[in-house]
């Protein structure tokens, strides 16, 4: 997957959690949670969807690395390079 594809994947998952999520002003370097009104329960859905869709096992200690859109891309790129 390319960086753009990973970005799209994350946004698609978030859209699925909250179909009213508004990405127009999203800053890729700021925490997703604050910008999109996600709480820790919603955040777990991102992890679980990645697992369901791409068989990715993300350990709990790595959750902070999914904080921003850009950090998601850098964390997931090596994990999804064959996807």
């Amino acid at each position: 997957m390319t960086s753009t594809e990973i970005q799209e994947l994350i946004l698609e998952i978030i859209q699925d959690i909250d179909d009213e999520a508004d990405f127009s002003d999203l800053d890729p370097d700021q925490p997703l949670r604050d910008q999109l009104d996600l709480d820790s329960m919603d955040f777990l859905d991102i992890v679980m969807e990645l697992r369901k869709r791409h068989k990715l096992q993300i350990p709990e200690e790595d959750y902070p690395r999914l904080a921003t859109l850009n950090s998601c891309v850098s964390y997931l790129t090596p994990l999804l390079h064959d996807a």
Binding site: D18, D37, D39, M41, D45
Partner: peptide, 12 residues
């Protein structure tokens, strides 16, 4: 009110 417990529950 997205952060309200009721709506969080339904999303989950």
């Amino acid at each position: 009110d997205k952060k309200a417990p009721l709506n969080r529950l339904l999303r989950q």
